[in-house]
Design a protein around this nucleic acid. Structure first.
Length: 200
DNA sequence: CCAGGGATCCGG
DNA sequence: CGGATCCCTGGG
């Protein structure tokens, strides 16, 4: 599989959010087995969007959002959970796509055993191991300390595709968990996927 | 339903 | 500085 290139990310967040569906997050660390998960749910955040971290300009936390598209933006939410975003657009735009849910593809057993040590593997429950932004980062081991600001084009954390084909129906609806700009339709998912996050 | 959890940001 | 808020989750 081919890593998505710079050009893929140098577009608006809404377009990138849709096109990330069906692509694969791949983590390759030297110590662990490779992990891969198919993205099934995303949300777009732009500079002119009151719900976006970038809305009030660059700060120490969101500085990565203003970089050239293709970096990982990882932040802490509610004191516990990390959220993984792909930065989009040219430098200075302050746009990103939140990856809300993915379906495990490679290293499923590793993810399961990390999350539920000692509990026998259950393939039905395993589909939903990464079904939420906090679950996704926890399951894949994506952290702010290690991954915030790194490139998604090559290296330990990449997003890859096996072809430009979209073989699913696209769902578009309002985003989850926000209190501002609630009317905007900026959440996208693969219709019918069992791995999308719960609340809608 | 609701509380935990800690960083962040804004106003004073 | 204080305190409100936050792109969430799991357990009642």
């Amino acid at each position: 599989m081919q890593a998505l290139d710079r050009g893929f990310y140098l577009r608006g967040a809404e377009e990138v959010a849709r096109d990330l569906l069906g692509t694969y997050i791949v983590l390759e660390t030297e110590r662990k087995t490779p992990l891969a998960a198919r993205i099934v749910e995303t949300e777009a955040y732009t500079r002119d969007d009151p719900a976006s971290h970038s809305f009030r300009g660059a700060t120490a936390r969101n500085e990565v959002m203003f970089r050239e598209g293709g970096s990982a933006y990882v932040y802490l939410i509610y004191g516990i959970y990390e959220c993984f975003n792909a930065v989009t657009g040219p430098e200075g735009d302050g746009e990103a796509v939140l990856v809300r849910a993915a379906e495990p593809v490679d290293g499923i057993l590793t993810i399961w055993n990390t999350r539920f040590p000692g509990i026998p593997f259950d393939p039905v429950r395993a589909v939903r191991l990464l079904s939420g932004p906090g679950l996704l980062t926890r399951g894949l081991g994506i952290t702010r300390a290690r991954h915030n600001g790194i490139s998604l084009l090559s290296g330990e954390l990449t997003i890859r595709t096996d072809g430009p084909f979209r073989s699913f129906e696209l769902y578009a609806g309002p985003r989850i968990g926000i209190t501002k700009a609630v009317g905007l339709i900026r959440r996208f998912s693969i219709s019918g996927s069992r791995a999308v996050s719960r609340r809608t």
